[in-house]
């Protein structure tokens, strides 16, 4: 891990700092603050002050406390949705690459069909039918994102499957388990790891956009996109209340993207040295 950090360029290291600070803040921050995310502790849209560092929201709740709690919600939902996407997309992608044949054809064609839509539009159509409970949001986001994970995994795994060391293992009569864990996964893992970062950002922005449109995480649960919507009117009074939660989301996204970019450059360099 330390070695990895040493390999990264400056901007990726900045990314690591941003992400670590963000995660620490949303995990422990709410416990350290004097206000909870739901208590009304001031008047509407107070500007930043010594008591409310970032001011208050549309009903007088402490904005910082809400951003931290909402940030936690956004992180958790995006993280689980991305895990779901990988849990669906990865095994399918590797299986399709190795088995080929009709299985590959069916899965690839279904994914193509799902990807014939813009993601957000498909999400809206599905949400209109299944509603906006957190489990259905998670499921919808996981399935949506899994299409891209599938395509990538299949492409990378096909490259690996064409290598002669796979043939050598086949000649040895190795088990499927060996193929997966010893031959294929170690070779596709770096690519999948960076993709996880990209998918996570995609999920965080999608869920926030949905919440912003009123179709994502519903009150009373706070989340970053929902807070932007709640405080939208403040903008006409020149207040920054809706911008701050959006900025928090952007900060997280920038942090992750910086890391991903650094990792991609590092992997490209490693390939070059071969």
């Amino acid at each position: 891990m330390i070695n990895l950090l040493r390999d990264l360029n400056l901007s990726a290291r900045i990314g690591v700092v941003i992400v670590v600070v963000f995660l620490l803040a949303v995990t422990f921050g709410p416990m350290l603050l004097p206000y909870s995310a739901v208590e009304i502790s001031g008047s509407v849209w107070e500007p930043p002050s010594a008591t409310h560092w970032l001011g208050t929201d549309n009903v007088g709740r402490d904005l910082l406390a809400r951003i931290l709690t909402g940030g936690r919600m956004t992180v958790l939902v995006s993280f689980f949705a991305t895990c779901g996407a990988f849990a669906i997309g990865c095994p399918l992608g590797i299986a399709a690459a190795i088995t080929g044949g009709w299985f590959d054809l069916i899965v690839t064609r279904s994914v193509d069909a799902l990807m014939a839509f813009p993601g957000l539009i498909l999400a809206l159509i599905v949400l209109s039918a299944i509603g906006t409970s957190i489990p259905s949001l998670l499921m919808m986001m996981a399935v949506l994102s899994s299409t891209i994970v599938f395509r990538l995994t299949r492409a990378v795994a096909s490259d690996v499957a064409a290598m002669e060391y796979i043939e050598v293992a086949r000649l040895r009569g190795e088990t499927m388990r060996w193929f997966l864990f010893k031959e294929v996964l170690p070779n596709v893992a770096p690519t999948l790891f960076t993709e996880f970062g990209l998918r996570f950002v995609f999920a965080a922005i999608l869920i926030s956009s949905l919440s912003f449109l009123g179709l994502g995480i519903q009150p009373p649960y706070p989340d970053l996109g929902g807070m932007v919507k709640e405080n939208a009117l403040a903008i006409t009074f020149g207040r920054s209340a809706p911008i701050l939660p959006a900025l928090a989301l952007a900060l997280l996204a920038i942090g992750v993207n910086l890391i991903v970019d650094g990792l991609l450059k590092r992997n490209a360099n490693l390939d070059l040295h071969k």
Binding site: S209, A232, G238, I243, A253, N257, L258
Partner: peptide, 23 residues
């Protein structure tokens, strides 16, 4: 561009609204 791909659409929207329309 790395920064801009990370910004959610609504953040850019509100920032521009704040600066271009309100301020």
């Amino acid at each position: 561009t790395l920064v801009f791909v990370s910004l959610p659409d609504f953040l850019l929207g509100y920032l521009l609204l704040l600066v271009g329309a309100v301020t």
